[in-house]
Simulated assay, not measured.
Amino acid sequence: MFRNGKSVTGLAILAFFVLVAIFADVLAPYSPTKIDPTQRLRPPSPEHWLGTTHIGEDVLSQVIHGTRGVIVVGFLAAAIATVIAITVGVIAGYLSGWKSEALSALTNVFLVIPGIPLIIVVASIFEDPPLWAIATVLGLIGWAWGARVLRAQTMSLRNRDFVLAARANGEPLRRIILVEMLPNLLALIAASFVGTVTAAILGLTTLAYIGVIPVTAYNWGTILNWASAQGAFQQNQWWWYLPPGLCIALIGVALSLINFGIDEYVNPRLRSAGERARAMRTKGLDVNDAVTAVRTDLSIPTDDPEPTDTAATREKATA
Protein backbone atom coordinates (compact mmCIF):
# COMPACT_ATOMS: atom_id res chain seq x y z
CA MET A 1 0.00 0.00 0.00
CA PHE A 2 2.75 2.45 0.89
CA ARG A 3 4.34 2.00 -2.55
CA ASN A 4 1.03 2.86 -4.19
CA GLY A 5 0.77 6.50 -5.21
CA LYS A 6 -3.00 6.58 -4.76
CA SER A 7 -3.02 5.33 -1.19
CA VAL A 8 -0.04 7.48 -0.19
CA THR A 9 -1.74 10.59 -1.59
CA GLY A 10 -4.99 9.74 0.20
CA LEU A 11 -3.20 9.13 3.50
CA ALA A 12 -1.34 12.44 3.19
CA ILE A 13 -4.56 14.40 2.59
CA LEU A 14 -6.32 12.61 5.45
CA ALA A 15 -3.36 13.25 7.78
CA PHE A 16 -3.56 16.95 6.91
CA PHE A 17 -7.21 17.14 7.96
CA VAL A 18 -6.50 15.17 11.14
CA LEU A 19 -3.73 17.61 12.10
CA VAL A 20 -6.01 20.55 11.37
CA ALA A 21 -8.66 19.02 13.65
CA ILE A 22 -6.15 18.43 16.46
CA PHE A 23 -4.59 21.89 16.32
CA ALA A 24 -7.72 23.84 15.39
CA ASP A 25 -7.39 26.21 18.35
CA VAL A 26 -3.85 27.10 17.30
CA LEU A 27 -4.41 27.35 13.54
CA ALA A 28 -7.64 29.38 13.56
CA PRO A 29 -6.85 33.11 13.42
CA TYR A 30 -10.12 34.06 15.17
CA SER A 31 -12.82 32.47 17.24
CA PRO A 32 -15.49 30.93 14.97
CA THR A 33 -18.20 32.89 16.83
CA LYS A 34 -16.41 36.25 16.94
CA ILE A 35 -18.64 38.92 15.36
CA ASP A 36 -17.27 42.06 13.70
CA PRO A 37 -20.12 44.27 12.41
CA THR A 38 -17.66 46.34 10.35
CA GLN A 39 -16.56 43.30 8.31
CA ARG A 40 -19.84 41.92 6.99
CA LEU A 41 -19.76 39.85 3.79
CA ARG A 42 -16.23 40.87 2.92
CA PRO A 43 -14.46 38.86 0.22
CA PRO A 44 -11.07 37.27 0.93
CA SER A 45 -8.49 39.75 2.15
CA PRO A 46 -5.18 39.69 4.09
CA GLU A 47 -7.16 40.03 7.34
CA HIS A 48 -9.71 37.32 6.47
CA TRP A 49 -8.22 34.82 4.03
CA LEU A 50 -11.59 33.24 3.21
CA GLY A 51 -13.78 36.29 3.74
CA THR A 52 -16.51 36.82 6.32
CA THR A 53 -20.15 35.90 6.89
CA HIS A 54 -23.23 38.13 7.03
CA ILE A 55 -22.45 39.12 10.64
CA GLY A 56 -18.68 39.42 10.25
CA GLU A 57 -17.54 35.96 11.34
CA ASP A 58 -14.30 34.65 9.86
CA VAL A 59 -15.02 31.81 7.40
CA LEU A 60 -11.53 30.31 7.65
CA SER A 61 -11.85 29.95 11.42
CA GLN A 62 -15.22 28.26 11.03
CA VAL A 63 -13.85 25.83 8.44
CA ILE A 64 -10.88 24.96 10.67
CA HIS A 65 -13.04 24.39 13.76
CA GLY A 66 -15.60 22.51 11.69
CA THR A 67 -12.93 20.00 10.70
CA ARG A 68 -12.80 18.71 14.27
CA GLY A 69 -16.47 17.73 14.35
CA VAL A 70 -16.25 16.02 10.96
CA ILE A 71 -13.17 13.97 11.88
CA VAL A 72 -14.48 13.00 15.33
CA VAL A 73 -17.87 11.87 14.06
CA GLY A 74 -16.42 10.09 11.02
CA PHE A 75 -13.85 8.03 12.92
CA LEU A 76 -16.04 7.36 15.98
CA ALA A 77 -18.96 6.15 13.84
CA ALA A 78 -16.60 4.01 11.75
CA ALA A 79 -15.06 2.47 14.87
CA ILE A 80 -18.48 1.55 16.28
CA ALA A 81 -19.69 0.15 12.95
CA THR A 82 -16.48 -1.84 12.39
CA VAL A 83 -16.60 -3.49 15.82
CA ILE A 84 -20.22 -4.55 15.28
CA ALA A 85 -19.51 -5.71 11.72
CA ILE A 86 -16.57 -7.86 12.84
CA THR A 87 -18.53 -9.38 15.71
CA VAL A 88 -21.66 -10.19 13.74
CA GLY A 89 -20.07 -10.96 10.38
CA VAL A 90 -17.27 -13.25 11.53
CA ILE A 91 -19.43 -15.18 14.01
CA ALA A 92 -22.22 -15.56 11.44
CA GLY A 93 -19.72 -16.80 8.88
CA TYR A 94 -18.00 -19.29 11.17
CA LEU A 95 -21.09 -20.79 12.78
CA SER A 96 -23.71 -22.76 10.92
CA GLY A 97 -27.37 -23.60 11.36
CA TRP A 98 -29.97 -21.36 12.94
CA LYS A 99 -27.40 -19.18 14.71
CA SER A 100 -25.81 -18.15 11.43
CA GLU A 101 -29.20 -17.62 9.82
CA ALA A 102 -30.41 -15.48 12.73
CA LEU A 103 -27.37 -13.20 12.54
CA SER A 104 -27.75 -13.01 8.76
CA ALA A 105 -31.42 -12.01 9.17
CA LEU A 106 -30.41 -9.32 11.67
CA THR A 107 -27.90 -7.97 9.16
CA ASN A 108 -30.55 -7.88 6.43
CA VAL A 109 -32.89 -5.94 8.71
CA PHE A 110 -30.27 -3.25 9.35
CA LEU A 111 -29.52 -3.08 5.63
CA VAL A 112 -33.01 -1.75 4.89
CA ILE A 113 -33.35 0.62 7.87
CA PRO A 114 -33.47 4.20 6.55
CA GLY A 115 -30.63 6.09 8.20
CA ILE A 116 -31.58 9.75 7.79
CA PRO A 117 -35.15 9.46 9.21
CA LEU A 118 -33.83 7.48 12.18
CA ILE A 119 -31.22 10.11 12.96
CA ILE A 120 -33.86 12.85 12.70
CA VAL A 121 -35.99 11.00 15.26
CA VAL A 122 -33.02 10.53 17.59
CA ALA A 123 -31.95 14.16 17.19
CA SER A 124 -35.45 15.32 18.10
CA ILE A 125 -35.09 13.60 21.48
CA PHE A 126 -32.14 15.83 22.41
CA GLU A 127 -32.44 19.58 22.56
CA ASP A 128 -28.78 19.87 21.62
CA PRO A 129 -27.62 16.41 20.41
CA PRO A 130 -23.91 15.86 21.15
CA LEU A 131 -21.52 14.62 18.53
CA TRP A 132 -21.07 11.25 20.24
CA ALA A 133 -24.82 10.58 20.00
CA ILE A 134 -24.83 11.38 16.28
CA ALA A 135 -21.75 9.22 15.75
CA THR A 136 -23.34 6.35 17.67
CA VAL A 137 -26.47 6.42 15.55
CA LEU A 138 -24.42 6.61 12.34
CA GLY A 139 -22.34 3.66 13.52
CA LEU A 140 -25.38 1.58 14.50
CA ILE A 141 -26.92 1.94 11.05
CA GLY A 142 -23.68 1.64 9.07
CA TRP A 143 -22.31 -1.77 10.05
CA ALA A 144 -24.53 -4.07 7.97
CA TRP A 145 -22.67 -3.88 4.64
CA GLY A 146 -19.34 -4.63 6.27
CA ALA A 147 -20.86 -7.55 8.17
CA ARG A 148 -22.20 -9.07 4.95
CA VAL A 149 -18.78 -8.94 3.29
CA LEU A 150 -17.00 -10.36 6.34
CA ARG A 151 -19.56 -13.15 6.67
CA ALA A 152 -19.03 -14.22 3.07
CA GLN A 153 -15.25 -14.18 3.41
CA THR A 154 -15.35 -16.04 6.74
CA MET A 155 -17.51 -18.76 5.20
CA SER A 156 -14.79 -19.30 2.60
CA LEU A 157 -12.12 -19.49 5.33
CA ARG A 158 -13.80 -21.81 7.80
CA ASN A 159 -13.09 -24.90 5.68
CA ARG A 160 -9.47 -24.06 4.95
CA ASP A 161 -6.77 -26.45 6.14
CA PHE A 162 -5.32 -24.18 8.82
CA VAL A 163 -8.75 -23.62 10.39
CA LEU A 164 -9.57 -27.33 10.29
CA ALA A 165 -6.21 -28.10 11.86
CA ALA A 166 -6.81 -25.61 14.67
CA ARG A 167 -10.25 -27.09 15.25
CA ALA A 168 -8.82 -30.64 15.31
CA ASN A 169 -6.25 -29.54 17.90
CA GLY A 170 -9.06 -28.45 20.19
CA GLU A 171 -8.42 -24.73 19.93
CA PRO A 172 -11.19 -22.61 21.49
CA LEU A 173 -13.51 -20.61 19.24
CA ARG A 174 -12.07 -17.34 20.51
CA ARG A 175 -8.54 -18.23 19.44
CA ILE A 176 -9.63 -19.60 16.07
CA ILE A 177 -11.39 -16.34 15.23
CA LEU A 178 -8.83 -13.92 16.66
CA VAL A 179 -5.61 -15.70 15.67
CA GLU A 180 -6.47 -17.81 12.64
CA MET A 181 -9.17 -15.84 10.82
CA LEU A 182 -8.87 -12.13 11.62
CA PRO A 183 -5.35 -11.71 10.16
CA ASN A 184 -6.77 -12.92 6.83
CA LEU A 185 -9.62 -10.40 7.09
CA LEU A 186 -7.63 -7.28 7.99
CA ALA A 187 -7.66 -5.86 4.46
CA LEU A 188 -11.45 -6.22 4.19
CA ILE A 189 -11.87 -4.73 7.67
CA ALA A 190 -9.72 -1.75 6.68
CA ALA A 191 -11.73 -1.23 3.50
CA SER A 192 -14.99 -1.42 5.48
CA PHE A 193 -13.64 1.09 8.01
CA VAL A 194 -12.66 3.58 5.32
CA GLY A 195 -16.02 3.24 3.57
CA THR A 196 -17.88 3.80 6.85
CA VAL A 197 -15.83 6.93 7.56
CA THR A 198 -16.87 8.31 4.18
CA ALA A 199 -20.53 7.50 4.75
CA ALA A 200 -20.46 8.99 8.26
CA ILE A 201 -18.89 12.25 7.10
CA LEU A 202 -21.41 12.61 4.28
CA GLY A 203 -24.24 11.76 6.70
CA LEU A 204 -23.08 14.35 9.24
CA THR A 205 -22.71 17.15 6.70
CA THR A 206 -26.07 16.28 5.15
CA LEU A 207 -27.83 16.37 8.52
CA ALA A 208 -26.16 19.66 9.39
CA TYR A 209 -27.09 21.17 6.04
CA ILE A 210 -30.78 20.30 6.35
CA GLY A 211 -30.83 21.70 9.90
CA VAL A 212 -31.21 18.52 11.97
CA ILE A 213 -28.01 19.25 13.90
CA PRO A 214 -27.98 22.57 15.80
CA VAL A 215 -26.10 25.28 13.94
CA THR A 216 -24.09 26.03 17.08
CA ALA A 217 -22.16 22.75 16.58
CA TYR A 218 -19.74 23.88 13.88
CA ASN A 219 -18.89 21.57 11.02
CA TRP A 220 -18.77 22.00 7.27
CA GLY A 221 -22.46 21.21 6.92
CA THR A 222 -23.54 23.97 9.32
CA ILE A 223 -21.44 26.48 7.36
CA LEU A 224 -23.28 25.49 4.20
CA ASN A 225 -26.58 25.72 6.11
CA TRP A 226 -25.87 29.31 7.15
CA ALA A 227 -24.70 30.22 3.66
CA SER A 228 -27.85 28.79 2.09
CA ALA A 229 -30.15 30.46 4.63
CA GLN A 230 -28.59 33.87 4.00
CA GLY A 231 -28.74 33.61 0.20
CA ALA A 232 -25.01 33.20 -0.41
CA PHE A 233 -25.69 30.90 -3.36
CA GLN A 234 -27.99 33.39 -5.08
CA GLN A 235 -25.72 36.39 -4.43
CA ASN A 236 -22.60 34.48 -5.55
CA GLN A 237 -20.77 34.92 -2.25
CA TRP A 238 -18.50 32.06 -3.20
CA TRP A 239 -16.01 32.54 -0.36
CA TRP A 240 -18.70 31.46 2.09
CA TYR A 241 -19.90 28.16 0.60
CA LEU A 242 -17.05 27.07 -1.69
CA PRO A 243 -14.35 26.31 0.97
CA PRO A 244 -16.47 23.87 3.06
CA GLY A 245 -17.76 22.24 -0.12
CA LEU A 246 -14.22 21.75 -1.39
CA CYS A 247 -13.17 20.32 1.98
CA ILE A 248 -15.98 17.74 1.82
CA ALA A 249 -14.98 16.82 -1.72
CA LEU A 250 -11.27 16.67 -0.86
CA ILE A 251 -11.67 14.38 2.14
CA GLY A 252 -13.99 12.19 0.05
CA VAL A 253 -11.29 11.94 -2.63
CA ALA A 254 -8.67 11.10 0.02
CA LEU A 255 -10.76 8.27 1.47
CA SER A 256 -11.53 6.96 -2.02
CA LEU A 257 -7.82 6.89 -2.89
CA ILE A 258 -7.09 4.98 0.32
CA ASN A 259 -9.83 2.52 -0.57
CA PHE A 260 -8.34 2.05 -4.05
CA GLY A 261 -5.00 1.24 -2.44
CA ILE A 262 -6.64 -1.28 -0.12
CA ASP A 263 -8.45 -2.89 -3.07
CA GLU A 264 -5.17 -3.25 -4.94
CA TYR A 265 -3.58 -4.80 -1.85
CA VAL A 266 -6.44 -7.27 -1.37
CA ASN A 267 -6.93 -8.30 -5.00
CA PRO A 268 -3.84 -10.12 -6.39
CA ARG A 269 -4.82 -9.29 -9.97
CA LEU A 270 -5.01 -5.57 -9.24
CA ARG A 271 -1.78 -5.75 -7.26
CA SER A 272 0.13 -7.49 -10.05
CA ALA A 273 -1.32 -5.08 -12.61
CA GLY A 274 -0.22 -2.11 -10.52
CA GLU A 275 3.29 -3.49 -10.06
CA ARG A 276 3.54 -4.21 -13.79
CA ALA A 277 2.39 -0.66 -14.62
CA ARG A 278 4.98 0.85 -12.25
CA ALA A 279 7.70 -1.32 -13.79
CA MET A 280 6.72 -0.15 -17.28
CA ARG A 281 6.83 3.50 -16.22
CA THR A 282 10.28 2.94 -14.74
CA LYS A 283 11.48 1.63 -18.12
CA GLY A 284 9.94 4.61 -19.92
CA LEU A 285 7.13 2.64 -21.57
CA ASP A 286 3.60 3.87 -22.04
CA VAL A 287 1.21 1.92 -19.81
CA ASN A 288 -1.78 2.64 -22.07
CA ASP A 289 0.00 1.66 -25.28
CA ALA A 290 -1.77 -1.30 -26.89
CA VAL A 291 1.30 -2.28 -28.94
CA THR A 292 4.19 -4.04 -27.23
CA ALA A 293 7.62 -2.65 -28.00
CA VAL A 294 9.80 -5.14 -29.92
CA ARG A 295 13.42 -5.23 -30.99
CA THR A 296 14.20 -3.39 -34.20
CA ASP A 297 17.78 -4.67 -34.51
CA LEU A 298 17.46 -7.73 -36.74
CA SER A 299 21.14 -8.03 -37.65
CA ILE A 300 22.76 -11.49 -37.53
CA PRO A 301 25.34 -12.01 -34.73
CA THR A 302 28.97 -11.96 -35.91
CA ASP A 303 29.79 -15.35 -34.42
CA ASP A 304 27.35 -16.98 -36.91
CA PRO A 305 29.06 -16.59 -40.34
CA GLU A 306 26.12 -17.52 -42.47
CA PRO A 307 22.34 -17.56 -41.92
CA THR A 308 20.57 -20.75 -41.13
CA ASP A 309 18.76 -22.33 -44.07
CA THR A 310 15.33 -22.86 -42.62
CA ALA A 311 14.06 -25.00 -45.55
CA ALA A 312 17.09 -27.28 -45.45
CA THR A 313 16.76 -27.66 -41.72
CA ARG A 314 13.10 -28.69 -42.07
CA GLU A 315 14.04 -31.29 -44.76
CA LYS A 316 16.72 -32.79 -42.51
CA ALA A 317 14.32 -32.92 -39.59
CA THR A 318 11.70 -34.66 -41.77
CA ALA A 319 14.23 -37.21 -43.01
Rank of each mutant, 00 (worst) to 15 (best):
V294K: 02
T196S: 11
A217R: 01
G274Q: 02
M280T: 09
F193L: 15
T222S: 11
L255C: 03
D263W: 15
L298Y: 12
I251R: 05
L204W: 00
I213D: 09
L186C: 00
G261C: 05
D286V: 04
I189S: 04
Q230T: 14
G195R: 12
T196R: 09
L185T: 05
Y265A: 10
N267T: 12
D304R: 06
V194A: 00
Y209F: 14
E306N: 04
G231W: 05
N184V: 00
L185I: 02
A199D: 04
V197F: 08
V266A: 15
T222D: 03
V194Q: 02
V291F: 07
W238A: 15
A293W: 10
A279T: 03
W238Y: 15
A199G: 07
A191Y: 12
I251E: 03
L270I: 02
G245Y: 04
T292E: 13
V291S: 01
F233L: 00
T206W: 01
N288G: 08
I201V: 06
A273K: 02
D304K: 04
G284F: 04
R276K: 07
A190S: 05
D263F: 14
V212G: 14
G231A: 05
R295H: 06
T302E: 14
A187W: 08
A249F: 05
C247E: 08
Q237I: 14
M280C: 06
I258F: 10
T216H: 01
G211D: 10
G274F: 13
K283F: 11
Q234L: 14
G231K: 03
Y218I: 15
I189T: 04
A208E: 07
D297S: 13
T206R: 01
W238C: 11
R295S: 11
S256Y: 15
S299D: 12
L204I: 09
T196Q: 14
A254M: 00
V287H: 03
N259H: 13
L186V: 13
T296P: 06
R278H: 06
F193I: 10
Q237W: 15
G231Q: 04
V294C: 03
G245T: 08
I262Q: 14
P307V: 10
G245I: 09
M280S: 08
T196I: 06
P214K: 01
D263P: 14
Q237T: 12
A273Q: 07
R276Y: 02
S192P: 06
L257M: 14
W226F: 12
L250R: 09
V197I: 09
D289T: 05
D303E: 15
A191R: 07
R269G: 00
L257W: 15
R271D: 13
D289F: 08
Y265I: 01
A229H: 03
G245V: 02
I189C: 06
N288R: 05
W226D: 10
T196E: 08
W238I: 14
S272M: 10
N225Q: 15
T205F: 02
W220S: 00
P244M: 04
P301G: 06
P244E: 08
G221D: 01
G274N: 08
I213S: 07
L270P: 06
I300D: 01
R295P: 01
T296L: 14
E264S: 14
P244A: 13
R281L: 12
L202N: 09
C247M: 11
N225C: 11
Y209T: 06
Q234I: 12
L270G: 11
E275M: 11
L242Q: 04
T296A: 10
M280K: 11
